[in-house]
Each structure stands twice: as C-alpha cells, then as structure tokens.
Design a protein around this nucleic acid. Structure first.
Lengths: 233, 233
DNA sequence: CTAAAATTTTGATCCAAATCAAGATTAGAT
DNA sequence: ATCTAATCTTGATTTGGATCAAAATTTTAG
C-alpha cells in the first residue's frame, strides 16, 4: 500500500525514462528522424544549451551526466539532473516561445544526439502515439521537478543533502556505492545550500556511520537512516 | 530585445493558455469529448482533487480560482494558481502512475468540467494536433512552475511577495487593482513565508506608497518599484 | 447592536544557515 | 618531487526570517 507521502519521496532531479517513444515511429519516420539528428560530444563543464538562446533542438543524452538549470543574477537553480538515456529540453516544445528557458551543462564528458526541433514537432504531428509518449515524459519530468521543488523549499539542510545523495544512488548510479564525480560546490548547488554547510553535514554523516565519502567514491552505509533523514529528519 | 533574465520574471504560478486545443478536434471528437465530460461546482475551500487518489480525470477550469499543491507532512507547497480558462491536471497523463501527484483546492466558488482521463488519452491518440497542443500546454506549465521554483528558492521575502502580487495583477486579475480574495494565510502559503512576515512586508509596502491593501481590494500604486523589488531588490 | 471568535498587526526573542575567516588537504604545474 | 593554486574543512560571527507573545482589528453569531 502506498501513502500520500510516498509521492514526494524521490524528490531529486532525474528523469528516468528510456527511449520507448522512438520505437513507436515507423521505419520511414525513423529515417526522417535520423536525417535530422547529429551526435555531439561535450567535455566536462561545457555548456550544451544556453538560457535565452534560440531553441533549435531537443537532445537525447546518450552518455554522461548533465544538469539543467535556471541562471539567476547571483546564482543558479538546478532543475534536474539527467543520466542516459533521456530526452532533455522537452519544455522547448511550448509554442509560444522559441528560446531555451534553462541552460544545460555537462558534469562529466557527455555525448548527446541533437534533434532538430521542427523535425521533432513534425513527428509529433505525424504520429499520435509518439506524441502521447512525449506527453507522458513531459508529465513525468514535471512530477519529478515538483518533488525537487518540494524538497528544496520545505526540507532543511540535512534532509536536502540526504535527498540528493539518495537520488544519486537510486536514480543516477543505481547503486549504493558510486564514484565521486561532483565537487562540494556542485553538491551545494544541487542541494541549495552553502559549500560550508555541505562540508559540515558530510562530516556529521561520516561520524554517524551513515555515509562514507572520500576522493574516489561515495557509499551509503546506513540506507535506512539516510532515508529517515531525507523524509525530513 | 529580451535578456536572459526576463525569462524568470513572471515567476508566479499561473497557466495562461486558453482552450485552443478543443478547437483542433473535429465534430465527432468534440461530441465524444462532451459525452465524457461532466460539470461540477465547488464552493470556496473545497478540495477538487486529492494527492494520492486515483487520477480519474483532467479538469477544465471554467470559473473561479484554484491552487494545485503538494501536501507535505507539515505544510503544503503551492505549485500553481489557475484562473479560467485553463486545463488542470495534465501531469496525470504520465503513464507510469495512475494517481494524482498533487491536490487541488478552490480559493473561491469555482466551476470545472471534469473529463474522463481515458477519454482524454483516446483523443490524444486520435488527433495528433490535439496532442501537440497538449504538449505545448504541459511545456508552458512546467516553465511557469520552474519560474516559481526559482522565485521561492532564490529570492528573499520582499521579492517573493512582490512577485506574488505582480503575478496576481498581471496573470490572474489582469489589472493593477483587484479584489482581495486571499487571506494573509493564503498569501503566506503562496509566497512561502510566515503570516507575520506577510503582515510586516505589506505594512512596509503601504508606508512606502508602493501598494494599497485594505479589506476590499489590492492596488499596485508603484508598478515600477514593485517590479524592481520582485527582481530581487 | 453586542459578544465571541477569528484574523491581522506589531514587538521581542530565537534559530538555522549564510557569511566571514583561517587552516588543512588535495590536485596541478613545472 | 616540490611549489602553487584550488578545494575542502572547521570555527566564529552575523543575519533573515521564524516563532513566540500580546494587542488591535475584523468577522461572525446571537
């Protein structure tokens, strides 16, 4: 049985769907899609799309790890993290505005397919099953971002960081022990707090035997306790 | 010319699209839709959909004012406010999960059309233009919610409240002077702060000649200044 | 119209987390 | 390997806004 509260649990920032939607295209449509797609490699730290620029394409993340974020005057708000294989930039399908409403940056070396946006829109109009799948993906992504919205506005520091760590383990790396590919600064940005607070909380997590973190990897030692902290402990 | 920053301006919580999508249906489809629609009237304060319940329908807001919100253990996070005419509950089109991921409540007396969700999905699969429009609406709504996400996490109290007031004026009531239909408690929930902070800031806004607020109406007296505060002043 | 209840305002106090300020550690360059 | 720059940790201080407390106002009920 599920309760009300479970919904807001995975409050971190990851879209989890694969590319079933491509499978819904027929051969001709697949060929058309392919002709309008280019593959691009980005290095760690490179910006894939820039907020405010013309939204010329949708991206499929094939390899790597990226964030989408809103650029503010002082600092950025991370909307989601994406791991392969996911579609990024569906919100550019809003007809009213032809610009990116967020930037996208690579955490690590990353490979994406860029799909021409008008071709993508044509496919939606050609194949209603494809469109339905895109609707489902968009709906899912907004549910996930809303969970993150809840996390960052309603939980306090310990809960937020626990949430981010659980998210990385459950949704991104899909294992309790994973390589440390993010800096403290990136953890801070992800969990919406200062770098110093991250350091302090990580030290506490280590002291309490909940987490092991060193220069190579992160490992959740006490999943139960981490979960309890995440649900606002 | 638009800058980068403009995007995150209207950071409040309202979907602004009308029902063009219905116009994309042919007569037969419209008839089908009509046969699967019921109109319901809700009184001020009544709950329209409950987080965690089976997602049986999508709603079209015909009259009134409603909020969608995530229910937390301690308090709620308002995701969006909707004024007529708008579609509410598109995120239930996510295939993976048949429950509402948020609750919906009426701020004032409200009339909605409930559309059976499987009928709605059928229409999406029957009419790709309809689906494309729904995609655009979903994309727009997520852009708006992301703006609100930015507002609540990155701005401080004065900016947040200014933002909410501007949002009400620009997007909901579409005038600088509008009836006071929300309590201080509702303002507090909307702008993510305590009731006392709302009172204090409103007093300050009045003292500075930026805002008039009494038991009947709200009026923005200095739009320019309010805007400056909203963009984090 | 009056009393009671609810809401709003104002002031005082407290707290979580940011910022400031040094050190300690790690990574990169020569 | 050594020096330098960057990142990370720890402690001290500050602060924005919440909470607590009480008075003022508004709304509701009789």
């Amino acid at each position: 049985m599920n309760s009300n509260q479970d919904i807001i649990r995975n409050s971190c920032a990851i879209g989890s769907n694969t590319l079933e939607c491509i499978e819904l295209l027929n051969d001709e449509q697949k060929g058309f899609l392919e002709s309008k797609t280019v593959d691009v490699f980005y290095q760690k730290g490179e910006v894939l799309t820039k907020q405010g620029a013309f939204a010329s394409h949708v991206m499929i993340l094939k390899e790597g790890l990226v964030k989408t974020y809103i650029e503010g005057s002082t600092d950025n708000l991370i909307l989601q993290i994406f791991s392969p294989i996911n579609i990024i930039g569906l919100s550019t399908l809003f007809e009213g505005n032809a610009v990116f409403h967020h930037s996208t940056q690579a955490y690590i070396d990353t490979r994406v397919s860029l799909i021409d946006i008008s071709a993508f829109k044509q496919l939606i109009n050609m194949n209603s099953g494809f469109g339905a799948k895109i609707i489902s993906l968009l709906a899912e992504q907004s549910i996930i971002t809303n969970g993150r919205f809840y996390c960052l506005t309603k939980k306090q520091t310990y809960g937020r960081l626990a949430d981010v760590i659980l998210c990385l383990a459950n949704r991104i790396y899909k294992t309790q022990k994973f390589p440390l590919q993010l800096s403290r600064k990136e953890f801070a940005e992800l969990s919406g707090m200062s770098i110093e607070s991250i350091a302090r909380i990580l030290t506490k997590f280590k002291a309490d035997g909940i987490l092991e973190i060193n220069n190579e990897y992160v490992e959740i030692l006490d999943f139960e306790k981490m979960n309890r902290i995440s649900m606002h402990g």
